[in-house]
């Protein structure tokens, strides 16, 4: 399935989609968005790449192997959850810092955002792992069936 149109489109779309996914993640606490949709949105262009080019090309787009992303995400989410215990509060209690921003606004940063980042990484790792696994040619000769 090597289509020039798909390849070209992917090349231009990829950075935009990744950027958009991060945007979705960050704004998720206030507007529609969040870790789940962000992670999916980040995985989509990589899946697209795997279809348009090759699995190896797609794999090189990721900074880490999917399984590591997944582990990192889980560790982040779990770490955030346990973090509250160290501050003498029940598991998963959120904490916030309010940073004044140039222009008079206030940036409200909290641990839930970190938790969301964990979700984002897990979802990204899960989806890319699945796509890569299924797209990789098996060591055995699959019985090909043209459809």
């Amino acid at each position: 399935m090597k289509s020039l149109i798909l390849q070209t489109a992917t090349r231009y779309l990829f950075p935009l989609l990744v950027l958009y996914s991060v945007f979705l993640l960050v704004r998720g606490h206030h507007e529609p968005g969040g870790g789940f949709i962000g992670g999916l949105m980040a995985a989509a262009p990589i899946a697209l790449c795997a279809l348009a080019y090759d699995v190896d090309v797609a794999r090189n787009l990721l900074p880490l192997r999917p399984i590591r992303l997944l582990a990192l995400g889980l560790a982040t989410a779990a770490g955030v959850s346990i973090g509250a215990l160290f501050m003498g509060r029940p598991l998963l209690t959120g904490s916030w810092v309010e940073l004044p921003m140039p222009g008079g606004g206030v940036l409200d940063l909290g641990t839930p955002l970190l938790f969301d980042l964990g979700i984002y990484l897990v979802v990204l790792g899960v989806v890319t792992q699945i796509i890569f696994s299924l797209a990789t040619k098996s060591p055995l000769h699959w019985e090909r069936d043209e459809s």
Binding site: F36, L40, V123, V126, V127, I130, S133, L134
Partner: peptide, 13 residues
């Protein structure tokens, strides 16, 4: 939705 996607992927595999 996300979970059923994961389960579907598992079922496909």
């Amino acid at each position: 939705m996300v979970i059923s996607f994961g389960v579907l992927a598992f079922a496909i595999a």
